[in-house]
């Protein structure tokens, strides 16, 4: 009498509506304690429902079509959004740095995705959307978070350490040498979340993908193996994207003549 392999019980729109009751509770708390979160909660709920609804249909459509160019196009759209979102907290001119984050996330995610698809999962078709889309979603999302952290941290490290950086420059360091320590800290900060996740996964939390697979009836050991692959690919995708982004971003803080840019020097 095993429950393993039982197909997942479908939930319908009414069930989702009932789930919204949970948010209603939070909104009630917010109103009571005057937390001022009602609006964000409402917007967040609506966006969640609409975005996931659309995504559900998009993936359904992709599965139906099963055409490689279409699947790849969807992943590219993800990358375009990720590059932009990564700069949400950046002090810099967003449009100018966008190519850096976008291309870094594209390359970092692309290499990792290719590795996992071709060497680890090896589905019958390299473009099978059933594998490609979920893996890409996780990889791009993590690469985006890492890149955002790294850019933000690099900016603040260079600003707050500009005296030491100018000392290094004045001793003959190139801009990359002068920024090496700031780069190290920024990359470190960006890699802490996926590394921490590797430490506590399965102990403190059950990751969403594994949970989902188990819900869908996958044998837990297979689900666990998939989760291992995911946990291992995320630091790789993050590290690749972050290193590229930082490498391209450093020259934006300095001039080609290895000088700190005026905006950085003047920043108080």
């Amino acid at each position: 009498m095993s429950h393993i392999g039982e197909p997942v019980k479908a939930i319908d729109s009414l069930d989702v509506l009932i789930a919204c009751g949970l948010i209603a509770v939070v909104m009630g708390l917010s109103a009571w304690r005057r937390l001022g979160l009602a609006k964000d909660l409402a917007v967040g709920t609506v966006r969640t429902v609409i975005q996931l609804l659309i995504m559900g249909y998009v993936i359904l459509f992709l599965f139906d079509q099963n055409r490689a160019p279409l699947t790849v196009a969807i992943i590219l759209v993800m990358v375009l959004f990720a590059g932009w979102t990564a700069l949400r907290k950046c002090q810099c001119r967003r449009l100018e740095v966008y190519p850096i984050t976008m291309i870094s996330i594209f390359v970092g995610s692309g290499v990792t995705l290719a590795y996992v698809m071709q060497l680890v999962v090896r589905p019958d078709s390299w473009s099978n959307p059933q594998y490609l889309i979920p893996l890409a979603g996780m990889i791009v999302g993590n690469a985006m978070n890492g890149t955002a952290l790294a850019i933000e941290r690099l900016e603040s490290e260079v600003c707050s350490n500009r005296a030491a950086i100018e000392v290094r420059l004045s001793l003959g360091a190139t801009r990359l040498q002068a920024a090496a320590e700031a780069v190290r800290r920024a990359v470190g900060a960006a890699l802490i979340p996926p590394i921490n996740a590797m430490m506590v996964v399965g102990l403190v939390f059950l990751p969403g993908m594994m949970t989902g697979q188990i819900l869908a009836g996958t044998p837990p050991v297979i689900a666990a193996r998939y989760q291992m692959v995911v946990m291992l690919m995320l630091p790789a995708a993050t590290a690749l994207s972050v290193l590229l982004a930082v490498f391209f971003f450093v020259p934006r803080l300095f001039t080609p003549a290895h000088q700190l840019r005026e905006e950085i020097r003047e920043e108080l």
Partner: peptide, 15 residues
Amino acid sequence: EPTQLRRRIGYIFQV
């Protein structure tokens, strides 16, 4: 080359 120039012309900062 700026990096070479700065090795020939040292700089002592105020602080």
